[in-house]
Amino acid sequence: MKKLINNPNNVVDEMIEGYVKAYPQYVKQLSENKRSLVTAKETREGKVGVLIGGGSGHEPAFMGYVGDGMADGVAVGNIFASPPPDPILEVTRTIDKGAGVVYVYGNYAGDVMNFGMAADLADLEYGTKVGMVLVTDDVASAPKEEIEKRRGIAGEFFVTKAAGAAAEKGYDLEDVVRVAKKANDHTRTMGVGLTPCSLPQTGKPSFELEENEMEIGLGHHGEPGIEKGELQPADQVAERLVNDILADMPLEQGEKVAVLVNGLGSTTRMELYIMFRRVEQILTEKGIEIHRSYVGDYSTSLEMGGCSVTLIKLDDELTELVDQPADCPMYVQK
């Protein structure tokens, strides 16, 4: 797989270097750990800090979401690998403005351990109160009975948005954790993979699919999904994804959602809008109101082909948080 890179071992550091140089008005690198980035703007004393992070290769997630109304800092890991505790800890110390820090991250074994260790150390070494919010939106990753085992994928965007907006509005630690957890509980994602990505170091495709196949429920790192099958027309794929979500999180007529149709990397916007078109039709047929829509690459898997559909059920509080402006390098909302 051809890539515009230099030494494969340096891709993450070089990416971060470029990123920081591109947006000096938005982000800065911390001194001890170049994988630790925080907002370039002074954050308010007494504001709850929001910390995100995870493996790289998902850009804009996670580093693209540092800025007003979203996260105050991010710890960047190797490709598809949780960051270790050090950079998490350094970010934590920097963004703690006396009101504690909330960690929002995906429910993966590595992230759970590394963020967990960082939280323990933050408490031990600086007495920082840390709130933990695990994202578990991927319906395909475990049955409903084991919902706490589910992984976090594109829906993390909404959870981060809720946490970031709440912190911005002056919620305290407990309340930021509460709404972020509510956002997670109200969020479901189903994805479909068409073509693999490859790690720069191995150059090998992350999985194999025939020229006419798709994989439903494919993981965000190329982990095999729940069902391989013949590639269907976009309308049918959209129906499958939405129906799986609604089976898991039933929505009544009159309920309100925000929708995210997320590209995994190499899928065109054209295809994403064609997918969105059918998602909108299905929801409208069921009398579910779409309050706001997001279509584009919000959380990718390198150059993987495919997309995911995320629904977040909105109550008044979440509606207000979703609507709040944000200003980050890779995502701006007025």
Partner: peptide
């Protein structure tokens, strides 16, 4: 390294050899 990544490609995200090597 390649063998470990190959095993991980089948089950996970394909990076185990890369990670161990780093």
């Amino acid at each position: 390294k390649d063998y470990l990544s190959e095993l991980d490609r089948k089950l996970g995200d394909g990076d185990h050899g890369v990670t161990m090597s780093i």
